[in-house]
Design a protein around this nucleic acid. Structure first.
Length: 560
RNA sequence: AGGGGUAUGGCCAAGUGGUUAAGGCACCAGACUUUGACUCUGGAACUCGCAGGUUCGACUCCUGCUACCCCUGCCA
């Protein structure tokens, strides 16, 4: 009803203007997400793919998924499968609009020949090093290749040799004839085709020439009828070239696509670069692309993030042209927000401290009924066993309480969530002075739900039966990087937060054994957890901490 | 001869010459509370990178500075 107007952004303004000016017939809007299948998607790709997808939805347009597989050196089909899986999971639907740049290769050849015939493309015999030398640099112009003015026929014939596989790699390239003294380096006779004798993941060994991005991309867009080609800022300098390629092709004079650039997403205290991730995997710091500490889509999924949280996050961070780094706290906010009404809430003790209820009978087990999620009535209730021996969190007890501490300490009474008021009577220490057990009493009149109003208690803590509870392994995550200082491949290891992963062996109420992979559970006071599908066994779940709960309680700075 | 971009509170980000410069995150204070969560209420930009100019009026237009980012792959 009060369908809140989606945040506007500069891209929508551009599109609105195009529609107003009638640039595209029938007010059509057609976007695309063009990943190169050479790695896994990360949160930055989520921003981009969602932007393209939602833009199409907003304007009742069309969205294409296109694999930009123009470089057989780094690409393979495993990545396309992984990418499709991640996009689907993110809620992106492309129906049958799934395309591959490589399927346009025959067409692209024709366009390349059209340039040759128009005298604006030539085969260059210079080697890579020479081409690099003659390109000039940022402040001085390049020099023209001696092969720049070959005849159309010679170019055609040489290019055919390249196509036919008669030319060794690196010996010849096809170049666009533009301007070797352009201040824009991209316009200094960019390479259109290079020779590669390789197996292409989709095309096999049939091809010997592969098109370069700058040439291929505008053509791919034009072939598919893309109207707005959204890409990241580093391609801003390529736009003149993008337009140049299209302007010189007869077929694409009608409603050519328009490239619009936006800033890519940076997230604080994490890494997204493929090379860096690979290094961390090689060094054994993380266990793969789907390590829960990574901001890859698969990592976030394994950690327990929901697609909705990522969608909302991407919506809220907006789209602009200013380079920026979004605080991870923002991402965490959206997963808390989403899980609050989705996660069942079970008790789990991460760092167990034994509690004996001295006035509770030895063998008595009382199955208390407790709401599974107080905020969501439909989730119903479940049973939780209360026994003589229990575990509470070590941090829920202090021998000598600091001011404003209202959990357990000698003489203090607290509520055991869903159960009774419990008073700490005494504690037991080992020979080193560590507290290893609490002796407590409970008050039968204070049972949860009995309507007892005799007195109030300041603290409520969570607990698990020591005899009925189940052992669980819990992985707590902190930020992967110590800070946001600049890192390189060389110093990356020094920047890693040594406490990025803490493994706890705790106990959870029996109900958690019913959780399946990807189910989320909120463990009281500690945060949200998900079952880790990678390592969990049915009888001994491994939980990942999706995100900690926020807490105003801060333990005192220092104690003697 | 260099070119292309960007600058709005701690972090994102609206704003396209005319109300007290949206909103979210973070933070602080208070209320509430069977999770110190959640929820609710309240709180900060004498000001929009800096300096000039145009205008009755500028974050929005002009000029000049400054800072940061991108570009010299047969990667995308």
């Amino acid at each position: 009803m009060d369908d809140k107007e989606k945040e506007s952004n500069f891209i929508f303004s551009y599109i609105d203007k195009d529609l107003e000016d009638g640039v595209y017939a029938d007010n059509r809007v057609h976007t695309r997400f063009p990943p190169e299948p050479n790695g896994y998607l990360h949160i930055g790709h989520a921003k981009s793919s969602l932007l393209n997808y939602r833009t199409a939805l907003k304007y009742h347009g069309t969205f294409n998924l296109r694999f930009d597989d123009t470089n057989p050196e780094k690409e393979n089909m495993e990545y396309v499968a992984a990418i499709k899986k991640d996009l689907k999971w993110l809620g992106i639907e492309w129906e049958d609009h799934e395309y591959y740049a490589s399927s346009y290769f025959p067409q692209m050849l024709d366009y390349a020949k059209e340039y040759i015939k128009k005298g604006i493309a030539y085969v260059d015999d210079q080697d890579m090093e020479t081409i690099k030398q003659t390109r000039g640099n940022l402040t001085s112009p390049g020099t023209e290749s001696p092969y720049r003015n070959r005849s159309v026929d010679e170019n055609l014939s040489l290019f055919q040799d390249m196509i036919d596989g008669k030319v060794p790699e690196g010996e010849k390239v096809l170049r666009a004839k533009i301007d070797m003294s352009s201040p824009n380096m991209n316009m200094r006779d960019p390479i259109i085709y290079r020779v590669r004798h390789m197996v292409h993941p989709k095309l096999g060994t049939e091809w010997h020439v592969y098109p370069m991005y700058d040439f291929a991309h505008p053509i791919e867009d034009a072939i598919e009828g893309i109207t707005h080609s959204l890409c990241t800022l580093e391609f801003e300098d390529h736009r003149p070239l993008y337009n140049w390629f299209l302007e010189h092709l007869d077929e694409f004079q009608h409603e050519p696509p328009r490239q619009i650039e936006f800033a890519k997403l940076n997230l604080s205290k994490t890494i997204m670069g493929k090379r860096y991730i690979r290094k961390l995997v090689d060094e054994g710091v993380i266990d793969g692309w789907d390590d829960p500490r990574l901001a890859t889509i698969s990592g976030l999924r394994r950690r327990g993030y929901t697609p909705e949280a990522i969608q909302n996050f991407c919506e809220e961070i907006g789209v602009a042209k200013a380079n920026s780094t979004v605080d991870t706290a923002m991402l965490e906010h959206f997963i808390r927000d989403d899980l609050r009404t989705k996660a069942p809430r079970y008790n789990c003790v991460l760092h167990p401290l034994k509690v004996t209820i001295t006035n509770w009978p030895e063998d008595k087990v009382e199955w208390l009924t407790i709401e599974t999620n107080q905020d969501v009535e439909e989730m119903g209730c479940h049973k939780m066993p209360f026994t003589r021996e229990l575990y509470v969190e070590q941090s829920d007890f202090m021998k000598e309480p600091v001011k404003k501490y209202f959990r357990l300490y000698p003489g203090n009474e607290v509520r055991f969530r869903g159960a009774y008021f419990v008073t700490c009577q005494d504690y037991v220490e080992d020979e080193n002075g560590n507290v290893i057990e609490l002796k407590c009493t409970y008050d039968p009149e204070t049972k949860c739900g009995s309507g007892f109003k005799g007195r109030k208690v300041k603290g409520t803590i969570h607990w698990v039966s020591a005899t009925e509870g189940k052992p669980v392994e819990i992985h707590l995550f902190n930020s992967l990087l110590k800070d946001d200082s600049r890192y390189t491949l060389d110093n990356l290891l020094d920047k890693i937060n040594p406490k990025s992963l803490e493994i706890c062996h705790g106990f959870a109420e029996p109900e958690v054994l019913k959780l399946k992979s990807f189910d989320k559970a909120q463990f009281v006071r500690n945060g949200y957890f998900s079952v880790d599908p990678k390592y969990s066994k049915p009888d001994h779940p491994v939980f990942n901490q999706v995100v900690p709960l926020k807490s105003k309680w801060r333990p005192p700075k220092k104690k003697n």
